[in-house]
Design a protein around this nucleic acid. Structure first.
Lengths: 229, 229
DNA sequence: ACAAAAGTGTTCGGGATACACCCATGC
DNA sequence: GCATGGGTGTATCCCGAACACTTTTGT
């Protein structure tokens, strides 16, 4: 194997991709093809890094290889280094199938990102398994310590999310103020007052009204807004 | 070598210990004993982790081994994984002296903490070198990517420092409001208005006045306060 | 008396919060 | 006409920022 494709057998990256569907937050999981019964087959997209590859690059690569997701702005989140983190019996079979040295201790650096769900339709099948979205409120038990990783990533996402810096890329180019509000509510997981939210948006001046309106809705059509340049 | 003392030859931890001296912020550095000219000999305390050791444990251990510092609450900060981060020619000699495999790519997880400087007098000499405090405004060029690590850690410290949660352990049990203010100014690196600061402290109700005063000062003695339980 | 730091109030503006009703549209 | 979400205003409170003079002590 040429040197640049060798693996670092004890360092991996895992990606926590949060997807917003206009209403709720989801997280991207990989479901393995059937490799035996009784195994937890859902996990985060992640893999060992290559020699000569930075962690950031590895995260990008892995996300593309496992979920065909490209050009996602990943942020580093935390590194999980408990020596026992991959040694749970529930994970043994997977390791024996996929790892040259199944008992090797592996640390993993987690990355997270927030994307618009309809920019990415999970590929129905790939060599490694299937990528799928899972409602954040309903995440099943995952392989390894991946439930913990999701929790930490969600916590960081919530902490770092700010109205004036991010979020707009998750909406259509023209959006209603209610859509923007729903985005914020989905991420912070708390409800906001409609009037106060709108006042705040106006104050911040980061958004401007167009003269278009919604169409084909069963109620008064809402005005569409766009990001102000 | 028994298994539990084997090294993970490509994973390390580095500790950025900020020390407060009542006035300014400092950072703890290790200065190597003389091992040749032209070398950058100052670096952060850090080392490879052991097999079967968590990252958190490794950080605690390394800090004790290199600087005799114990019982410090370290927070994980960031993991640096650029494959070239230890390959600068300026660092080659050090690696050849101290590492079994000097060209091995090493990723490092950085930790940081904030301590009271007079709880720790750096040991004048140890097997590896000397620990010393360095004014944060005056950090020299360090080995590897340690300057970058210090910057990232400082940024995180400033972001996470909050009046109501932390900081008091850096002051004497009884302290003046000016000392508290200086602590805040040292960390955030900006000046605060005395009256506004005091009002805020009163509002937060996290501090209470004692009936003692400073002694042996060349001016009107200040009232001493303590943390409110 | 003087140097040095302690200590103290008020004003202003802006943002956060709480709260209830009418409006436009499709069916 | 009714169901559905769209859209709007006011009052209060708290916080942050700006700003200058008197007091107490040691020498």
């Amino acid at each position: 194997m040429p040197q640049q494709f060798e693996l670092n057998s004890n360092i991996s990256v895992d990606c926590v991709i949060f997807g917003f569907d206009g209403e709720k937050l989801n997280v991207l999981l990989i479901e393995e093809k059937d490799i035996g019964q009784g195994m937890l087959r859902k996990r985060l997209p992640g893999d060992l890094i290559l020699k000569n590859e930075s962690l950031d690059d590895a995260a990008d690569r892995v996300l593309y290889e496992l979920a065909t997701l490209r050009n996602v702005t990943l942020k580093q989140c935390h590194t999980f280094g408990d020596p026992g983190r991959v040694n749970d019996p529930k994970d043994r079979k997977w390791l024996e199938l996929y790892r040259k040295d199944p008992s090797e201790r592996v640390i993993t650096t987690a990355y997270y990102a927030l994307v618009k769900m309809d920019d990415f339709v999970p590929n129905p099948a790939s060599f490694a398994g299937e990528a799928l979205w899972c409602d954040i409120q309903d995440v099943p038990e995952l392989a390894f310590d991946h439930n913990e990783i999701v929790e930490v990533a969600l916590w960081k996402l919530q902490r770092h999310f700010e109205l004036n810096k991010s979020g707009y890329e998750l909406l259509p180019k023209k959006f209603t103020l209610n859509q923007l509000q729903q985005l914020h509510e989905a991420i912070t997981q708390e409800e906001l007052d409609k009037r106060n939210f709108r006042k705040k948006v106006v104050r911040e001046k980061l958004v401007e009204a167009t003269d278009e309106k919604q169409d084909n809705v069963l109620h008064k059509p809402a005005r569409l807004y766009r990001i102000k340049v």
